[in-house]
């Protein structure tokens, strides 16, 4: 672990209706690819990208829903210990926007209350099919105290900006927390993942 080559590690979790382009956003950002018409990637749990921001190496661990959103069956544990949530809808699909309150309810229930949430309207390359106006989305995100961004995974519009801005916010949040929160207070993420707990034997 001493070889860890980064200053910060953040877990970013994507949520939103099926088909809004979550996986495409992740693949665009991490691999620079737009896989048209491709289903969920089998066997890939999360993707990693390390970026450098102001000289700090930031490792982003980006988690996708693994298709569990299809029938509204996301596990609570998916939300645990996420530092940021990217709530995505499709600007050409009114339904995906209308479902946002339901997603917010899940966030309220299961995510840490310190989580940063970004609302993303994806598929702006299909402007002619737009069903959700930018203004409506902005009003909504403002009311819910979320950041808002419109993206196109296909045209690679705003995708880097989305993740890099988020990384910046996470860094400043993390800095603040170490200043304010240096008391031994139980926080999520304080537990240990079992593979890394140290070993020492009875004898």
């Amino acid at each position: 672990m001493s070889m860890e080559d980064y200053d910060f590690l953040f877990k970013i979790v994507l949520i939103g209706n099926a088909g809004v382009g979550k996986t495409c956003l992740v693949r665009r950002f991490t691999q620079g690819l737009f896989p048209p018409g491709q289903g969920a990637t089998i066997g890939v749990d999360f993707m990693i990208k390390t970026v450098e921001i102001k000289g700090e190496k930031v490792k982003l661990q980006i988690w996708d829903t693994a298709g569990q959103e299809r029938f509204r069956s996301i596990t609570q544990s998916y939300y645990r210990s996420a530092n940021a949530l990217i709530l995505t809808y499709d600007i050409t699909c009114e339904e995906s926007f209308r479902c946002l309150p339901e997603w917010l309810r899940e966030i309220e229930q299961y995510a840490s209350n310190k989580v940063i949430t970004v609302l993303v309207g994806n598929k702006i390359d299909l402007a002619e099919k737009r069903e959700v106006s930018k203004q409506r989305a902005e009003e909504f995100s403002e009311a819910q105290n979320m950041y808002y961004l419109e993206t196109s995974a296909k045209e690679s519009d705003n995708v880097e900006k989305l993740f890099l801005d988020l990384a910046c916010r996470l860094i400043s949040e993390a800095r603040q927390n170490t200043l304010v929160n240096n008391v031994a207070s139980p926080l999520p993420g304080e537990g240990k993942s079992i593979s890394y707990l140290t070993c020492c034997n009875f004898n």
Partner: peptide, 27 residues
């Protein structure tokens, strides 16, 4: 964002932006 970022050298120079490494992930 009120924080200004600079595109990292890695981003602009490195074509394969998916950093594959041996690192373990841990919070």
């Amino acid at each position: 964002s009120n924080t200004k970022t600079e595109p990292s050298p890695k981003e602009s120079s490195d074509g394969d932006s998916c950093k594959v490494s041996e690192e373990h992930h841990e919070e």
